[in-house]
Simulated scan of single mutants.
Amino acid sequence: MEISLEFSGGAELLFDNNKKHDVILPDQKEKWNIKNLLVWMKDNMLRERPELFLQGETVRPGILVLVNDADWELVGELEYEIQSKDRIVFISTLHGG
């Protein structure tokens, strides 16, 4: 399944400093949701300091997640069933000073 992942607000620094990644998720028995996408991202994409992106099984507070331009809270958060061609955006609102 092909999806687009985008990062901004500094989150891209944890993913090879690339803001956009077109990825193909491997086939699996269970349907893809954001919860198992985050595990896949940690294992396959996250290059450094996972603690700045993940906290437990979800994203850290301060990281906004949009699914097709809608707040993930409106579509089911971790349980949202990912569809082919979805665009998932992670925006860090945390800034050092």
Rank of each mutant, 00 (worst) to 15 (best):
S8T: 14
G9A: 11
G9D: 08
G9R: 02
G9S: 14
G10A: 10
G10I: 09
G10Q: 03
G10N: 10
G10M: 04
E12P: 06
L13G: 12
L14D: 02
L14C: 00
L14K: 06
F15N: 04
D16P: 05
N17R: 15
N17L: 07
K19T: 14
K20R: 15
H21K: 11
H21P: 07
H21I: 12
D22K: 15
D22F: 14
D22M: 14
V23F: 09
L25A: 06
Q28W: 03
K29W: 00
K31D: 07
K31R: 11
W32P: 05
I34E: 02
I34L: 10
I34T: 03
K35L: 10
K35Y: 10
N36K: 02
N36F: 02
L37C: 03
L37N: 08
L38M: 06
L38W: 07
V39F: 06
W40N: 04
M41G: 06
K42Y: 03
K42R: 12
D43F: 00
D43K: 11
D43I: 06
D43H: 04
N44G: 02
N44R: 02
M45K: 08
M45S: 01
L46G: 05
R47Q: 15
R47E: 13
E48T: 14
R49A: 12
R49P: 00
R49F: 11
P50S: 11
P50W: 07
P50E: 14
E51F: 09
F53G: 03
F53A: 08
Q55C: 12
Q55V: 11
G56N: 07
E57G: 07
T58F: 12
V59K: 02
R60T: 08
P61D: 13
P61E: 15
G62D: 04
L64Q: 15
L64E: 13
V65P: 03
V65F: 08
V65A: 10
V67D: 00
D69L: 13
A70D: 12
D71H: 15
L74A: 13
V75K: 09
V75Q: 03
V75W: 05
G76D: 00
G76C: 02
E77L: 12
E79V: 05
E79T: 12
Y80I: 04
Y80V: 05
E81Q: 10
E81W: 00
E81A: 01
I82A: 06
I82H: 04
Q83G: 06
Q83P: 00
Q83I: 02
S84D: 13
R87A: 08
I88Q: 02
I88W: 02
I88Y: 00
V89I: 15
I91L: 13
I91E: 09
S92H: 08
S92N: 10
T93P: 05
T93W: 09
L94T: 12
